[in-house]
Structure formats: C-alpha cells, structure tokens
Design a protein around this nucleic acid. Structure first.
Lengths: 232, 232
DNA sequence: TTAAAATCTTAAGATTTTCTGAATATAGAG
DNA sequence: CTCTATATTCAGAAAATCTTAAGATTTTAA
C-alpha cells in the first residue's frame, strides 16, 4: 500500500509540482494551499509524512509541525525559501526531520521523502532500485547523500547538475532516458524549454570526466531519436 | 470497458488526427477545439486521461492542467509545438505527466497514452497484444521503450523510422499490412503521398539488417498488390 | 563586501546519422 | 511480351547530436 503524504504550500505552483512528483512515485497525495485545511487533513487522515512550507498566510509551518509532533508520529519535511535560512536551526529543533530549501530539484525532494519513509519500517518491504540512495554497479558508485561518484576506484568530481543527470541515468539503467525526462527529473517542469541543448552539454562533460567518448561510449550510450542509456 | 480520453487542440487537423488514432484503439474520445468546452467536459465526464495543447485561444492548456490537478486524479499529456516561442512555453507545462512535441508519430502518441493508462492499474486487466510495449515471437524481440530490436540473439540497430515500421508489421503479424496503412501509422495521414517509395526503401533497409532478402524473404514477405506481411 | 572560482546556460557551427526522392533495375500478372 | 508493382541504389536534404567557447550566474573565499 502506498504511503499517504501531505503537502502544504501557499504557492500553488510549488504544491502542484510536488504533488506531480509524488504521484509519479505512486504515493497518495493530500495537497493544500493553506494551513487551516492542512490541519483538518492531519486530524482526519492517516498520514505517513508531511511536507510543510514554513511561510503560510494563516498558520505557519512550524505551528503545524508542532501540532503533528504533539499528537502523531510521522516524519515532517520543511520547505524553506532561501532567504529564510536563519530559521533552519529553529525548524529542526522544533522537530522537523528534514528541511529542503527552495528552489529544489524534484529528484532531491523525492529522495528525501524516501529517506524519511525508510526510517519507518513499514515501507521498507519492497525497496526498489529507484528507492536507493547509493547506486553501485560495475565499478560505478553514486552516493546521493554526499553527491560523491567513484568510477573504478577513481573519484569523479561532478558538479551538482552533472551528478543529478548521471543519477537519473543510473537509476534508470537498462532503459533509455529521453532528454525530456532528464529535464523533468533534474530541473522540474518550470524550467522546461524545447530549444536548448543544456542536457547535451552536461552529458558531454560527464562523458569527459568518465573518460568516455560519444563515438564509442563505454558508459553513456546515445540511442538515436530516443535518448541516452546506461547498460545494465 | 474502454478508457475515456479528452483531446483538446485548436488546430482541428491535429485534434481530428488524434481522435482517429485513439478511436482506432477503441478508446472513447472526447474532442474539443477550445478550452472552455474542454473544461465543461472535465466537470461532467468521468475521464481517464487528457491530452492538452499548450496554446489554446481561450484558456491555455496549463490552466486546464492545473484545474485537473486540483480536483481530479488522472494523467495529463501536453502537446507542445516545437516552433512556439520559448518564453510562451516556459512555465506553462508545469505538472503534466508526459510531453509530446508536434509533429509526432501516431504510433508514438498511442504508445505514450498506453504507458500513462498503464500507471493506473484499473486498465491493466485485459492487456491485449496491441497494448504491449514489448513484442516477442519466434526469435524476434522489439522493445518500444528502448527502440531495441533483437533477432535470434543478434542485436539489430534500427533507426527510429525503421523501428516504427517493423513495429507496425509485427503488431499486425499474420495479417497483410498495406503501404498506406504503414504510412498512416508511422507518419500520419497528412504526410501521405502516392508518389514516393519511402516505405519501400525503409523496408529494404530493415530486410538488410535482418539478413533478409526480397526474393525469398524469411521475415517480411511481399504480398503482391496488397502490402507486406510477417508470419504468425 | 568584494573578488575569485566554479558552475551553468546559450549559441553557433561541425559532424554524424537518418530520411527522402529520383533514376534505374527486376520480377510477377495477365 | 508488356505492363505494372516492387526492388535497388545512391546522392542530396533534413534532422539529431556533438563540440567548443564565451558570457551569465551562482557559490566560495578572502
């Protein structure tokens, strides 16, 4: 059975985005644009995790978090705008299990959600490849927590974007991943444009660091007309 | 029971085309040329999927998508024209489950629709031959996701068009497929002309890669005056 | 706060792959 | 044998991908 997740953010675009990515992972999503409705949901639904924006027009995220802590026992992830960094410590001490600063990568959000759910054994049962925070196969090791990447004992220093792209490719290995999908996963929809080759340039850089070549690639293969692929 | 699918596009030709292909797959199609009528349909019909053009004269696809997200729980596929201004598109595609850029192949559209419907278990029950994304029989394996093709353990590297044509032949195996039908499936009606032999050339290339010959073909047989056929 | 470094994005052009149409050849039907 | 449908070949056009580099932006360090 899928976990029930609450998302509250008065920025509807953010809440909607989060909803899409969570639904994509087959979670049940309860979405609200204000604190009042969220509190109501908390009382009436059996939740497994809550994602709360700190700044809400009516009841702020901290208060909601405290309310949850008082009566329930499920993890809470706080969303904070970059400018509110001062409050980070406060939020944590008030009992949030994790916090994410906006803007965030869908990939990152989903990874954090899974990490929190994992702490509650109920959802440990069928851990798929996609749920892992460390990917390791044929000489390649990727660690989502540290963003470290090792290839045959050699350490590749990847930039955040490069790491994210490689992560997407690796967590879908054996399958072809379209450029569109990479965009979707790494940047999120709102940065989507049709006419740029940003992904390609990053792929190029990753290949370079892997000592891989486009013409006869050992790792990242080009599937013409479809996308990129890493062999199983 | 067949799924209910909404298609909205102010380019009537596109909407009509999509309608034809979806009806061909026995879906119930609700077709509209503007956003207002579409919204009305969303409220009154029990939909299973929506295909929305981003640029509509009255209410844009993005708004419709948000409206759906807010109240319902079915997948949304967005249609975007490649030529559309980047600025217009940025931010407009938020929240869709998949994207297809125009022009697209009917085959591709149908495949994406099925992929989305599959995510909703309700329609998993009676998966027919046509719904599959992998075709496998007598030593031949075609994978729609990766565009990979294996013939007796040997890997054929087909171009996108070649793959599409072979897919059409295989998914209709045992039956003769006319050149016109191949055109219809792979390119869509509007590109159909009688005065070229493009399909033939592609068939030739496919046969070559299969080590097949026209005079005594093992796989793709020529049915004089009718079309091509792959034995069951 | 400012400067330096790292990273990201964009754009233009090069390269590679794929598609198409024309010319010509071959094979089957009547 | 003739007519027509299908096959073959190939070259130019079109499309997708790759490469490079410069400028913009963000992060880090002083």
């Amino acid at each position: 059975m899928a976990a029930n997740i609450l998302i509250v953010d008065d920025e509807q675009a953010i809440a909607d985005l989060v909803e899409v990515y969570l639904k994509n992972e087959n979670y049940n999503v309860f979405k609200f644009y204000n604190g009042r409705d969220a509190l109501n949901c908390i009382e009436n639904e059996k939740l497994d995790l809550a994602i709360l924006d700190v700044m809400l027009p009516d009841i702020d995220g901290f208060s909601i978090c405290q309310r949850i802590r008082g009566k329930y026992n499920f993890p809470v992830i706080m969303l904070t705008a970059k400018e509110e960094e001062v409050d980070e410590i406060t939020g944590l001490t008030l009992g949030a299990d994790d916090y994410i600063t906006k803007p965030f990568r869908p990939l990152e959000l989903v990874a954090r959600v899974k990490a929190q759910l994992r702490r509650f054994t109920r959802y440990n049962t069928a851990e798929t490849e996609q749920d892992k925070r460390v990917i390791e196969f044929s000489g390649l090791v990727l660690d989502m927590d540290t963003h470290e990447c090792m290839l045959n004992e050699r350490r590749l220093s990847l930039t955040p974007t490069e790491f994210s792209i490689l992560w997407v490719l690796c967590s879908n290995r054996g399958r072809v991943v379209s450029v569109e999908k990479i965009f979707h996963e790494v940047w999120g929809d709102k940065y989507f444009t049709n006419s740029n080759n940003t992904v390609m340039v990053h792929i190029r850089h990753i290949r370079e660091k892997m000592h891989d070549s486009a013409e006869r690639p050992k790792y990242i293969k080009t599937v013409w007309g479809v996308g990129y692929k890493i062999e199983k």
